[in-house]
Design a protein around this nucleic acid. Structure first.
Length: 257
DNA sequence: GTTGAGCGTT
């Protein structure tokens, strides 16, 4: 098994990271280790995986101990077919040791005084080395990872923080206002979801057509619901939950939330 | 069980 990345970055003081792209989603560090280790001393191999699914993201980071070896691997493994897919090996630009790369200038660090026309690794991609190619490619990227990015973005709370700072002058006021509006919006979404007659209505299948025609937009109910619930939906605590005594119907509490 | 531009963790 792969013991890489099991205890975080082992040692990146003198290692050169290489980025391996275009690898298959099933390729693991163990598969790349022998391949990369053949061309030099591989210190560690890390493959970012999804937090939820745990699947590979399609690229891996290979850390070499020496730059010359890394460079060699880049030139030798770049374009190699692994698992039926042509992988792309190149030096990592961003990362924990990106600074070192610029400082060390591994690209030009050649043991043999061999002056090469192109110090940088020759990305011999397909003839599709166009410039606008990326735009069209980027589009496809948002297919199955869109939700992942969405979740990630939400988790960062970037927007929330920014807004908070903007109104830091009056946190109370802003919070109250922001909260109310936010809640409203959120409830709106919730309502939208609740609209699903799946579990809200236990038996709406018998009369779904008439109701639908009756409320094609849902504006009427919308206002009604907002007016009736806007004031203080959360302030109201109908469930005076008896801490000591357990509720006679635990299911009720579940339904509440 | 899918996907295919990109830059990473205990």
């Amino acid at each position: 098994m792969s013991h890489f990345g099991r205890s975080g970055p082992p040692d990146i003081t003198d290692t050169y990271s290489l980025l391996v792209l275009n690898i298959t989603f099933r390729t693991t560090a163990d598969d790349l280790f022998p391949l990369f280790d053949k061309y030099g001393k591989v210190v560690d191999i890390f493959i970012p995986k999804d937090r939820r699914t745990g699947d590979s993201r399609g690229f891996a980071f290979v850390r070499y101990k020496y730059a010359d070896e890394a460079q060699k691997a880049v030139e030798r493994l770049d374009g190699r077919v692994v698992d039926g897919r042509e992988i792309t090996v190149q030096f990592a630009k961003y990362g924990p040791n990106a600074e070192k790369i610029q400082k060390g200038r591994i690209i030009e660090s050649f043991p043999r005084s061999r002056h090469r026309s192109r110090s940088r690794s020759p990305y011999r991609r397909h003839r599709d080395d166009h410039y606008k190619d990326r735009d069209y490619r980027r589009r496809s990227r948002s297919r199955s990872y869109d939700r992942y990015e969405r979740d990630r973005y939400r988790g960062k709370d970037k927007d929330y923080r920014r807004r908070s700072r903007s109104h830091s002058a009056s946190p109370d006021y802003s919070r109250g206002r922001g909260r109310g509006r936010y809640d409203d919006d959120r409830r709106s979404v919730s309502r939208s979801m609740s609209a699903s007659p799946a579990r809200r209505s236990p038996s709406p299948r018998k009369s779904t057509s008439p109701r639908k025609a009756s409320l094609p937009r849902g504006e009427s109910p919308d206002r009604r619901v907002r007016d009736g619930r806007s004031p203080s939906p959360r302030s109201v605590s109908p469930r005076g939950r008896p801490a000591g005594s357990r509720s006679p119907s635990p299911r009720n509490s579940d339904v509440d939330e």
